[in-house]
Design a protein around this nucleic acid. Structure first.
Lengths: 198, 198
DNA sequence: AAACAAGTAGACAGACTTGTCTGAATGCCG
DNA sequence: CGGCATTCAGACAAGTCTGTCTACTTGTTT
C-alpha cells in the first residue's frame, strides 16, 4: 500500500494521496469543467505540492482519464446499491432513470462527464477518446442486457435498448440544460410506455 | 449599412467586417470549442486587427452570444429549406431527424452548440445562459407545434412532443460521441413507431 | 475644412497555463 | 546505516489568455 502521508476523506476513512488527488480533481473537473480547472487550483484545494501531483499523474490528461474512470465507478456503484432488492428487469430499467435524476440533483445538474469532456475537447486525445467510448458502451450494454431479460431475447431487443439509451442520454443533457429533473421524468414515462406496448 | 472595408465570403458575396468576424468565430468555436479558441486566433484567421474585433464586440462573451444566435439561424434556415415541399406534419417531424443527421455530418459531428457551451462553462454567464434556454425552447416548441398538428390537439401531444425532443437531443449527443449517424437513425425509427402507435 | 466612423498594426498589462526542476525532508525496509 | 519511495515548497520556463491602449489611415458626412 503506497503513500504514507495520508488524508482523511469526508467519511473519516484513511485514504492515500493518490486517492485524495482523484477526489479533488473529480469534484473540480465536474463542477467547473476540465479546461477551466488548472493544475494549480487542484493542488491548492487538495493542499499538496505540485511535484506530488506529477509524481502520481504524468500529465493533466492522465488525471482526466482517472477522473472519467472514477465518475463511471461512482455511477455504477451507486446504481447497483440503488437497485439492490429490485430484480424484475423492467423495474430495474425504470429505476435506473429515477437514480439518474437523483444523481444529477446531487451533482448540481452537472450532466454526464463523458458528454461534457468531448464537448470541451472536440479534437480529443487518444486516451480520453478511448475512455469515453469504453464507458458509453458499458452503459449501452447495461440497458441491452436488461431489455433482453425484460422482453425476451427477440431481435427487436437491440433496437428497444438503443431507444431507451437515447431517452437516457436525452434526458440527461436536457436536465443539464434546464437544471431540473423533469426531462428525465418524461423519459422515464416514455420508457414505461415503450415497454408496455410490446 | 456600416462597414466599408468589405470581405468576400465563400459564395463571393460582399459581407461586412462584423459578418466576417461572426463567420470566423462560428467556425472556430464549433470546431475547437469556445475555451480552446483564443481571440488572437480568430483575428489571425480572419485577417483583422484586434481593435477591429473589439470595436464590434465588447467581449468574448458577446461574440459567443452572436455565435449561438448564428448557429441557431443556420440550423433553422437549413431545416426550413430542407422541409420545403413537405407539408404533412409527421413527415416534417421525421425529416427533421434526417436533416439533423445530415447537418451533423456536414459539421464533422461537432454536436449541438448549446449543449457544448453549457458543458464548457458550467457556471455560465447570464447572457449565454439566457441564449441557450431561448434557443432550446425554440426547438422544443417546433416539435410541439408539429406534434399537435400530427396527432390532433389532445392533451397527450405535449408529452409526445417532449419525448420526440428527448430522442432528438439523445440522438444528437450520441452522434457526437460515436461520430456516426446511426443513433439519429435509431431515434428516427423510434419516432415513427411512437407516432404510428397512437 | 472639420468631425466622425471604421479600420490598420502592434505593444502592453496582468494574469493565467502546464510542466520541470532543485533541494530538502520524512519514513520504511533491508 | 544506506537506499528507496514519497512528499514538501516553490522558483522557473515558455507560452497562453483577454482586454486596453496608442498612433495612424481612410472614406463619408456635415
Amino acid at each position: 500500500m503506497p503513500g504514507y502521508y495520508l488524508f482523511y476523506s469526508m467519511e473519516t476513512q484513511v485514504i492515500t494521496v493518490r486517492e485524495h488527488i482523484i477526489q479533488t480533481a473529480c469534484k473540480l473537473f465536474h463542477e467547473q469543467g476540465y479546461n477551466l480547472t488548472g493544475i494549480n487550483q487542484i493542488i491548492d484545494e487538495a493542499g499538496l505540492a505540485k511535484a506530488s501531483l506529477y509524481y502520481h499523474f504524468p500529465s493533466k490528461e492522465d488525471l482526466c482519464v482517472a477522473y472519467l474512470q472514477r465518475r463511471n465507478k461512482l455511477w455504477f456503484d451507486g446504481l447497483e446499491s440503488y437497485l439492490n432488492g429490485t430484480s424484475e428487469p423492467r423495474h430495474r430499467i425504470v429505476k435506473t432513470f429515477d437514480f439518474r435524476a437523483l444523481h444529477l440533483e446531487n451533482n448540481n445538474f452537472g450532466g454526464c462527464s463523458y458528454i461534457k469532456i468531448i464537448s470541451e475537447m472536440p479534437q480529443r486525445g487518444e486516451k480520453i477518446n478511448r475512455q469515453v467510448l469504453l464507458q458509453k458502451e458499458k452503459q449501452r450494454l447495461f440497458f441491452l442486457e436488461l431489455t433482453r431479460l425484460a422482453i425476451g431475447n427477440r431481435k427487436t431487443a437491440a433496437r428497444v435498448a438503443d431507444t431507451i439509451f437515447l431517452l437516457f442520454d436525452g434526458g440527461t443533457v436536457q436536465c443539464q440544460v434546464y437544471r431540473e429533473v423533469t426531462p428525465l421524468q418524461v423519459a422515464r414515462r416514455a420508457v414505461v410506455e415503450l415497454l408496455d406496448g410490446l
